[in-house]
Design a protein around this nucleic acid. Sequence first.
DNA 1: GTAATTTATTTCAAACTTAAAACATTTAGG
DNA 2: CCTAAATGTTTTAAGTTTGAAATAAATTAC
Lengths: 160, 160
Amino acid sequence: MNTQPELRLAEQGSKQRLRLWLRLLAVTRKIEAELRERMRTEFDSTLPRFDVMAALSRHDQGLRMSALSGVLRVSNGNVTGIVDRLAEDGLVMRVPVAGDRRATLVRLTARGAEVFARQAAEHEAWIDAMLAELSPEEARSYAARLRTLAQKLDDKGAME
Amino acid sequence: MNTQPELRLAEQGSKQRLRLWLRLLAVTRKIEAELRERMRTEFDSTLPRFDVMAALSRHDQGLRMSALSGVLRVSNGNVTGIVDRLAEDGLVMRVPVAGDRRATLVRLTARGAEVFARQAAEHEAWIDAMLAELSPEEARSYAARLRTLAQKLDDKGAME
DNA sequence: GTAATTTATTTCAAACTTAAAACATTTAGG
DNA sequence: CCTAAATGTTTTAAGTTTGAAATAAATTAC
């Protein structure tokens, strides 16, 4: 056996990358499950709602529905439902766009901004505790590596 | 300002960890989106179905519903639905457990095993291509780091 | 200017997901 | 035994998610 060492090596790389992906997925799911649980028990809310509010909090002037779904990388129809429910609760508002009656701007209400600020502070503390194992320097370095990886993935996607 | 340097430093660590989490989430979602798209177009299937079949493929003798949901870290009721649909398609089968009429064993059918083998090979190739940026050694080292992190997270969860 | 195309969003059907309730069965304690 | 607690699974209600179809409005091309 092992008459084709270059093939064996390629296989090895493939297996290592697959293993990495499975671990990445496991850790991400674990953290998400924990965050979801806490959002539910502490704030009677959900992660998707938090994600939408987080995106809006970075844009005082509001975001169009399409921009929102672009930022969050979820489908248009998905955002519609979440924004509907947030609006019912008075946390976000839909504002018409002057000069384009197709579009809507979504913004946090004053109460929404208040509620989000409280949740964001806790959220950051939860993450900090869960990733306490990693030093700030280690976190910085992994984040940087992931950034270049994400960039490469986006480049590939753009070619289609 | 900066009269409390120890606080500033703690804040820094917290911000770095939060940034890392957001990148982790972004990369994971990007890869998942790509895998889902390919599962759909190439195999007319979904990621959750693939995940269930992958778990079953590692257990020739089959898995109980509860073991399956434990391995996949999803809720019991969730697995029920996915297994229902896989069973309709003749890819998995429910087998009664001798001596315990509450439990069910789920196993891949012969056709299910065949179908999964094809999908798994492609799946591994997709991952390999998406993570080609990472050398096998780099992948191995990150996977190891994630493993210890996952372990720590599990330990914390076990304390509740 | 009107028709065709593009853009922005919502609606829809199907699947996935969760937590909690319901159900069935088994195990343990008196 | 027989009842209470524990275990294994499904059902249910609500929300999330997708991709595709529908709707509406704006833009482009005759």
